[in-house]
Each structure stands twice: as C-alpha cells, then as structure tokens.
C-alpha cells in the first residue's frame, strides 16, 4: 500500500505509546534519542499510532486516499 508516515520530532515526547501498540511492530524506540523509528515496509497504515499519540506527532497518510 502506498502510504507516508510523517513524524514531527519536536512535538514528540518519547513516551513510547506508538511503538508499544503498533499491531505490526513497525515502530521501535531509539533508546539513545528517545524517539520512535518507523519501518515503512512493515506499516499497514492502520493509523493507530496517530490516534494514540498524546502529542499529535505522527501522521499516517494513505496515498490512495489523496
């Protein structure tokens, strides 16, 4: 699927919620930076990380929608 993950690093507080509940394990937390790293390959654009991010730092765009 064609999709785009937009991540606003300056808004992210590194809570790890997006990574913990990604159904496909597409997000890992970079321990050093304390920020999430997204694996676009694994991502199915379910949008759950966007919905649960308390800081509105992730946006999942489905290209086919646009």
């Amino acid at each position: 699927m064609d999709k785009k993950i937009e991540f606003y690093e300056s808004w992210c507080k590194g809570c790890g919620i997006c990574a913990a509940f990604c159904p496909k394990g597409a997000i890992t937390m970079d321990k050093m930076a304390g920020k999430p790293v997204f694996d676009e390959e694994k991502c199915i654009a379910c949008g759950l990380c966007e919905l649960r991010c308390p800081d509105y730092a992730v946006i999942i765009k489905k290209k086919d929608k646009e």
Binding site: S10, W11, C12, K13, G14, C15, G16, I17, L51, R52, C53, P54, D55, Y56, A57
Partner: peptide, 12 residues
C-alpha cells in the same frame, strides 16, 4: 508540544 507530561492520556 502542550504542557502535559510525556505519555499523559489527556492529549489522547
């Protein structure tokens, strides 16, 4: 970001 603590559910 807003004033809420990291991971606070209020933002959700």
């Amino acid at each position: 970001p807003h004033i809420w603590c990291p991971g606070c559910g209020h933002g959700v």
